[in-house]
Every structure is written in structure tokens, then in C-alpha cells.
Amino acid sequence: MITYPATDSKPTRQAFGDEITELGKNNQDIVVVDMDISKSCKTDKFAKELPDQHLNVGIAEQGGAGVAAGMATAGKIPFLSTYAVFGSMRMAEQVRQETCYPFLNVKIACSHGGLTPANDGGSHQAIEDMGIYSSMPNMTVIMPADYHSTRKLVKEASEIYGPVYLRFTREKVPMIYDENEEFTIGKANKIQSGNDVAIIANGDTVSIALEATKQLTDQGISVQLLDMHTIKPIDREAVQECMDIGNIVTVEDHNIINGLGSAVSNVVAEEGNARVRKIGVQDQFGESAPYEKLLELNGITVDNIVRKAKELV
């Protein structure tokens, strides 16, 4: 069930830290490989409670990725934990060669996705990561929207075989789902049905899209709202439904190139006929600023979603 407006908010990295510790207690093959930032990635609790299943390789992401792959060949389920910029770029080739190519069961679980490490500046804001991992065969790419959905999707990622990239927020995001909501990797979560325009969002932009949906609904526009937490494999059936509506707005905290909007547009280009407007980071690096300011600089706002939706309807 959706709670809107949300009464509480938490960073989704916290959900990862909480869930992975519970999962580790029940499955001793689950291993966390940290790279010196366990406190920030919220895996410090796992390290403390499950020291025999934990490894800290220091500031050495490439080696960490290789070690995880080696452990996976022996039946371990390693979760590499770092920031999204390093987890998707410093170790990209290692993950490609030693996890995706041999199809090993390694998960890359990264905090500080998108613009959420706002005051850290452009160096730490990962806007390319989901596109990079979407390009790699065998990889699944996910960004959950809030605390409870993150816990569910982390659990599911631990239960499916194969490489998964999971992306979390540094900033707090509203808790919109209750703990009983179920999530399936590769299956969009339909928050609301409608027939004038479809809004497809993921990650921290789902709560922004929710507010836009409310405003549009108040103005008599019927909105279908999807939480497309998995951008690869994309839920083609769900996109098909949106194509039937004919108007689609995508919203993401990622570069406008190669993220959610591109994944949706690919399905539209291949299989159907609909008008798509993409909202996301405008192919530009960020800077140190409040998180909301950075979203605004890229048009990732309630007002812009409402405007684009109305242009289409």
C-alpha cells in the first residue's frame, strides 16, 4: 500500500544495510566485500555482527571486484559495497570480465546513486552508472524507490542467480510503501492506473512523480504511474500498456542518456508507437549544492513533470 504524503523518510542505503545483515544471518554464503566506506554504505552493522562473512579490501575497488568473483566460483554470494561512481566505473571492466562474462553470482550494491550525494559535488554524483551496467550482457540493473522496496528488492536480488547492480540513495527519501508491498525484479510496480498519460519513474524520483500525479489527477487528468525499479530487464508488458495510453513521461535521477528513459524509449522504438518525454539529468555534471537544487537544475521537479504531461495530453 502507498502512503502519500509519506510520514517518514530514510536513505535507501540504510535499507540495504539493514536487509543484508538479516539475510547474512540466515545464509552464511552471503558475504559483504567493503572498500573502506562501510559506515557510509551502512554495511558496518553487517561487519560487526557477521565478521566471518565480511571482508574489507581497503581502497581497492578493482581488486575487491576480482576477489568477489573468485569467491562466487566457490558458491559464495558476494555483495560488493561502495559508492555508485566507483562501483560502476573504477571496477567496471573487472565486473564485465570476471562477473558478467563468466556469469557469476556477484551483486554490486552501491550507495550515493544519482545526485543524492549532493554536497559531495560532481565527482561523487553517479549519473552514468545504470547506463554502463545496462550495456553489459547478463547484468540486471535496479534502483528501488524507498526504504521498504529496497529491502524487498535486495532480498530478491540475493535469491536470484547472476550479476545484479543495485543503486541506493545517500539522501533520505520519503517512505511511500508499507512493509507488506511485494516487489518482483523485472516487473514494474503499478502505483496507479490511468488512461491519459503514463508516468514511469524509478528510485528517488518516484516520490516526486507521485506528487505530480496527485496534481494532475486534481486537474482531471487520468495518470498511470509506474515504479520501474528494474531498468534491465525492462518490463516490456508494462511499457506496452503505457504505449496503449499513447503518452509517456519518464523520470529518473540519472543522465538522460542510457537510463530509464532510454530503456523505455527502446521498447517504444522496437515494439510500438507512443510519444515519450524524458526527464532526467541533462547530460551535465553536477556540483556541490542542496539535493533539491540539483534536481531543479535538471528539471527533475513536480512542476516539470506536470508541464510535460500536460503538453502530451
Binding site: 578493482q62 569467491m71 562466487a72 566457490a74
Partner: peptide, 19 residues
């Protein structure tokens, strides 16, 4: 484990030993 990109296999061997 698959190899071919130099510098990477040794980390994998380390991971196997840790496991």
C-alpha cells in the same frame, strides 16, 4: 574462471582462497 584481461585473474585466485 574466465581470464584474458591482464591483472585481474590473481584477484579471483585470492577470492577462491578466501572462500
Amino acid at each position: 574462471i574466465s581470464t584474458g584481461s591482464l591483472g585481474q585473474g590473481f584477484s579471483c585466485a585470492v577470492g577462491m582462497a578466501i572462500a
